[in-house]
Design a protein around this nucleic acid. Structure first.
Lengths: 145, 145
DNA sequence: TATTGTTATACTCTATAACTATA
DNA sequence: TATAGTTATAGAGTATAACAATA
C-alpha cells in the first residue's frame, strides 16, 4: 500500500546524499575515488595481479596500468614480478598505502557514526537493520544471476 | 552497546554498494555522473544561472562552463541570456533533457524497488524508516553548521 | 572595481587500438 | 597463438590563472 513507486524515489536520493556526505568527509591522502577503491581492495584482499584488479574494479587493463602507475608514483603501492608467471605483475600495498587506507576507513566510519548518533534510538535501530539487509539483498541478487 | 565503531564500517560499505548497484542500472542517455546530477537539478529546480549551478554542484565556474557546453552539444540543455543581467547565462533543459531525466529517475527507482522487494516485510519497513531518517539527519546537520 | 562567464593550460580517469614479451 | 602488460592517443571531468564584458 505504501510501496508504490512514489515512495521509493526519495529513498534513492537519500542513498546518493548519504554517499556524498560520507565521501566529502573522507579526505586522508587526497585520493581519487578510483585510487581509494583499488587501495581498499588491495588492503582487504592482499596482493593482486594487475589484470585481476582491472576485472574486479570494472576498468580496462590499460586504465589499471595507468592507475597503478599513479598510485606507485604516490608511494601507495609497488609493482613486483609474479613468480609463477613471467608475464604477470603483482601489485602490493606499501606501509604508506596501509596507513592511508586505515585513516580513510576511520574517517568514513566517524562520519556515518556522527550522523546516526543524531537519530532517536528507534531510527538508529532501523538503520542497523536496513543497511545490512540491503547489502544481503545485493549479494543474493548477484548470486542468483 | 552495539553502536561501537566495529558495526558502523560495514554499514558505510553497504551504502557504497547500494549506490553502485543503483548507478549501474541507471543507463538512459549514457550520461556521466556530473551531467546526470546537473540535469536532475535543472529538471527539479527550473532554469538556473551558470554560476548558481557551479556553486550548487560544488565545482568551479570554468568546469561548469565546460559541462554545460558538453550537455548543450548533446542536446540536453540550452544557453539563454539572462534578461535581468547582461553578464549572466541562464541554463534551461530541452525536451530531450527532460525525457532523459524521467527515464533515469524511473530506472533507479525500479532498481531500488527490485532490491527492497526481495526483503521480508520487517526489513522493508526498516528501510522505509532508515533512509528518510538519514536524509533528515544530513539536512539537520547542514542547517546547524 | 566587482561579478559573470570564457579561454588557456594541466592533471586524473577512462577507453580502444597497436605493440612487446612471455606461455 | 593466446595472454599479460604497456604505450599511444583521445575524450570527459576537474582545477587554477588570465582575460573579456557587463554592473
Amino acid at each position: 500500500m505504501d510501496s508504490g513507486d512514489g515512495s521509493v524515489e526519495p529513498m534513492v536520493a537519500a542513498v546518493e546524499q548519504l554517499v556524498h556526505y560520507v565521501r566529502r568527509r573522507t579526505t586522508a591522502g587526497g585520493l581519487s575515488h578510483a585510487a581509494a577503491s583499488t587501495l581498499t581492495r588491495l588492503c582487504q584482499g592482499g596482493p593482486r595481479r594487475l589484470s585481476e584488479l582491472a576485472r574486479s574494479e570494472n576498468v580496462s587493463q590499460p586504465s589499471m596500468t595507468q592507475l597503478v602507475s599513479r598510485m606507485e608514483r604516490a608511494g601507495l603501492v609497488r609493482r613486483a614480478p609474479d613468480p609463477d608467471d613471467g608475464r604477470g605483475v603483482l601489485v602490493t600495498t606499501t606501509g604508506l598505502g596501509v596507513e592511508v587506507y586505515r585513516a580513510r576507513k576511520a574517517e568514513r566510519a566517524a562520519a556515518l557514526q556522527h550522523l546516526v548518533a543524531r537519530l532517536p534510538e528507534e531510527e538508529q535501530n532501523a538503520v542497523r537493520i536496513a543497511l545490512p539487509a540491503l547489502t544481503r539483498a545485493i549479494h543474493e541478487e548477484r548470486a542468483s544471476s
